[in-house]
Design a protein around this nucleic acid. Sequence first.
DNA 1: GTATTTGTCAATACACTGTATCGGATGAGG
DNA 2: CCTCATCCGATACAGTGTATTGACAAATAC
Lengths: 234, 234
Amino acid sequence: MTDSPLIWERPEPAERSTPSPLSRARIVRAAIVLADSAGLDAVSLRKVAGALDAGPMRLYRYVDTKDELLTLMVDAIVAEIPAPAGPTWDAVLRSIATGLRDTVLRHPWFADLLGGRPYVGPATLARGEAALSALRATGLDDLDTITSALATLDAYLIGAVRKEIAEHRAQEETGLDQRQWQHANGPYLTRMFATGRYPALEEWVHDARHLKAAEAFELGLGYLLAGIASSLPR
Amino acid sequence: MTDSPLIWERPEPAERSTPSPLSRARIVRAAIVLADSAGLDAVSLRKVAGALDAGPMRLYRYVDTKDELLTLMVDAIVAEIPAPAGPTWDAVLRSIATGLRDTVLRHPWFADLLGGRPYVGPATLARGEAALSALRATGLDDLDTITSALATLDAYLIGAVRKEIAEHRAQEETGLDQRQWQHANGPYLTRMFATGRYPALEEWVHDARHLKAAEAFELGLGYLLAGIASSLPR
DNA sequence: GTATTTGTCAATACACTGTATCGGATGAGG
DNA sequence: CCTCATCCGATACAGTGTATTGACAAATAC
């Protein structure tokens, strides 16, 4: 009877014959479906249990706390990110980046959890392993460089992806369109600009090129890779 | 009677003579004190009201919803970040970075809100304005370069700061020390490594230099600035 | 100065949340 | 078939954000 505080070490309880059999996998899948269609707020133990024709308390056999369920969800999503690969170190880093971004676009709630706590589930470990070995296969074998490159990339990804999702949501809230958003916030901003306190911002709003999210993502990634490249031992 | 959906456009209700007078500022300050000492979860309308010797419903005169309170809290924190400044463009970007990081270390809950939605409060606008004009004062006046540099920096900052806070919390949870953390997760990791499925990770844990958060932050920032520099029109 | 409107505040209430507790049903072992 | 341990679900509790309501007080109208 292992009662480790880490869910990764607690074996799944034995299956039972019951009208609606449960398992961690089923629970997590139901929770993910819920989150995909209605956001993280819609994931309550009652609703997850309801989706499985079970009482809320039944879930506590498989999971000690709601946080653990979220942790499992994260690892489940990480598991579906394609493994990073590429011939050169920057191709590998790029594949890490787009892998994460694509996944977040499919599961926006994932962005809410990103960077919220350290995750060490099996899929996350496997992804770390894959990233490390893919990088070293390209000939980049200074461990410290690899470490800092990955850490920096990770930070950038978390922020970029969160910002993109946040923007996405703001647009959805106030209608569908960016025009709609401008309609909601536009008057406010116009009035703020009219105060004359934000001349540079005003000019920026009017004159700067406003990139699409995907382009901005790529551009930032390019900066980062260029920066890493410039620090590589030649 | 303005009933704009944006709190920035709704004037604060007139003051009233009452045993414990309220105001948005007082409410937000109380909420921040609560969040500082016990995290965002401790910020409930009841507790905030309680700290001000008021009933929960009284807050709804000043704020339409809890989300609005959080929005005000964010802007209040942004207001206390020192304005970015510096002789060169990279000095300005550096000051933006350390300004945010220092503030987040003082108000860890701020990291939970960062990147969660687009913020356009007055302090946030003012900060944007300050950043823009400080950058242009250094002679960097290509608006598109400025835009993408700021956006990328912002993304990196959000992620880096979140990761740092997350790590911080994980350590606090399982005791005080990093040794304690290793004690809690160590056995699990050891067992995972024993499976032989993570050879590169195992080597990494043993051999790589593991930087302190501040060093890692600085290092990533360095990469980013170098990358931006390499794309500057010369 | 009185009557009427208006607006504020506290209490109550509702629909939720995560989770502790516990009695009873239901499985397996003898 | 009985016993016993186990698991389930109902109930319960403390908490959440917020809608509603009804009383009271201040400002306005006459």
